[in-house]
Simulated assay, not measured.
Amino acid sequence: MRKLMCGAAAAALCVAFVSEAAATEWNASVWGKRRAFTENVEKIAELVSEKTDGAFTINVSYGGLSKPKENLDAISIGAIEMAQFCAGYHPDKNRLITVLELPFLGVSNLEEEVAVSNAVYAHPAVQKEMAQWNARLLMTSPMPQYNIVGTGEPRDELAEFDGMRVRATGGLGEAFRAVGGVPTSVPATEAYNAMESGVVDTVAFAQHAHLSFGTINRADWWTANLNPGTVNCPIVVNTDAYDALSDDERAALDGSVDEAIAHYLANYGELLKRWDTVLEEKGVQKVMISDEVLAQFRDKAAVPARDKWIAEMAAQGLPGQELYDLVVSTLEKTRAGN
């Protein structure tokens, strides 16, 4: 019957049927709304479609497929093919990449964040851990150093962090805990409500998130240079779905990563350029923390958090020290190359 259908009389119908059957469609789960943080996903979806003449498409869903803290679980069971998640949402599931969330690592720009993320993602132990979730690391979503917004008088002395309820995840949360803060890890989509209702006093975000999730609209002040660290948020793909791609589709996906990251960096750079204007328009005070306070913060948070993390990884038979050293050496090489 199949041979008969593909005869000359039904050639057009047969070609249409085969083309439809050969099309590959993926679903990618992110959250919130389209913003600087999701531009790498949007761009890679655009690129793979272009490179395969529409035979491989990625549908980007903003919360319709899975909750932010459940994206990795959805990947593991094959409910979705691609997802964005943040390590601090579930550090027990992605222990090793949380090295990138340690406070005061010294990463100073987005290009350095990409470099250290790529180095860590490529480490065999990290890939093995992700494989437990049937996940393959594809690329990072680099973010600048986090800073906090709050209401009332600015908190620009270390003593004022004592008892401060702050929305901060992962290593950032531990940094604030080290100086008496009370961190909570509500998802980004709930941060505005947490601030509005008084569940938290302050919110730690990168610039795009303060803007996208509205926390800047409730703020009286923003710390311009606290820079305690950032959150690491990879894009992962389901391993089975990745393996099922044709050679051309896989080449289109892998070959689009660098382009997607370049687009992301350029787009985020534009946001950073206009950030001071955003603060002025919204009447938010730009607070500069003194060098003395910053040094006190680093002394209390950086080394203790690093040593604790390395010890915890070692106790679980994981190469924490090796990964920390990899981050440090990658930063040195990146700066030397520039």
Rank of each mutant, 00 (worst) to 15 (best):
Q296S: 15
R298Q: 14
D248Q: 08
E153D: 12
E42A: 05
V237S: 05
T57L: 09
A219N: 06
R298N: 11
D254C: 03
I289T: 14
Y242F: 13
H208Y: 15
Y192W: 12
E46A: 13
D162V: 15
D243L: 01
A311K: 09
S66R: 02
E42L: 10
E196V: 10
G173L: 03
G63K: 03
M82T: 01
T98L: 03
N59F: 06
E174G: 09
E42Y: 05
V231S: 14
E322H: 11
K3I: 15
Q145F: 10
E157L: 09
A204E: 11
R306Y: 08
M82F: 11
P228V: 09
P234E: 06
A45F: 03
A125Q: 14
E160D: 15
G255Y: 05
A314S: 14
P91G: 04
F56D: 00
A119K: 08
V60K: 06
V278I: 14
A266E: 06
L271N: 05
G320A: 15
A252V: 11
A252F: 01
A295L: 13
F104K: 09
Q321I: 07
D325C: 06
E101P: 05
N40D: 02
V18R: 06
T57K: 15
N40F: 04
A191Y: 08
R306D: 00
E174K: 09
W222P: 00
E332I: 10
D254S: 02
T239M: 08
